[in-house]
Amino acid sequence: MTPLLSVQGITKRYGMHFGCADVSFDLYPGEVMGIVGESGSGKSTLLNCMAGHLPPDAGRVVFDTRTDGPRDTITMSEPERRMLGRTDWAFVHQHARDGLRMGVSAGGNVGERLMAVGERHYGNIRDKATDWLGRVEIDASRVDDRPTTFSGGMQQRLQIARNLVTGPRLVFMDEPTGGLDVSVQARLLDLLRGLVRDMGLSAIIVTHDLAVVRLLADRLMVMKSGRVVEAGLTDQVLDDPQHAYSQLLVSSVLQV
């Protein structure tokens, strides 16, 4: 079976220092990969290299495209990459403001990807947007409100709706619960888990929060100083960490 995404030898240097060094893994359809580590571990650098936001110094990111089969997205032309970003790929930013148009209504935000791929019926667009607002537990009456009037949790849920409305096959998430209250986080994680399952999404989630990966990720990579120190099934790594650093991470989490 062809991997949906095959990451091969991604390396990014900042002067003498490695952002990330020689990272490789394969991701299959329907799988969720978690990447954990503390700040400075290189996980965000890795995510941005994979998602095409940062050019790596070495390596390939091969995506199984619908029409052309496996293609290295690093060497793709910018138009092709941007097209991918609007259709098969999605990126959920840590700060919802970075992933939303704050001056556009909630309905407009969700509808934009639909309009970008050719939807031309206002009523249908509005209905789909409203439907998606419901799926992320935002009240339909807020469809014409701007995200500036939403709480942090609502903004994040709106960002998720905006990203998922065109049914992407791969979602990148950068600390999706970062900065949110604990109870809000829990709700968001439940929502994400349901959506990922229902839509059969593949996802790569970067986080420092082990609870997020426990709940959402099938597989896990632990990063430290730009390198992957341990990888495996989530439950195995969390319940029986082998590497000293993984052990430190797991044991540092307060058990309440």
């Binding site: 209504s105 407009g108 934009e112 309009m115 206002y122 509005r126």
Partner: peptide, 12 residues
């Protein structure tokens, strides 16, 4: 897409 978003916003 942005152009159509503007038209959408007008109608809403």
């Amino acid at each position: 897409g942005l152009m159509h978003v503007k038209l959408y916003e007008d109608i809403s």
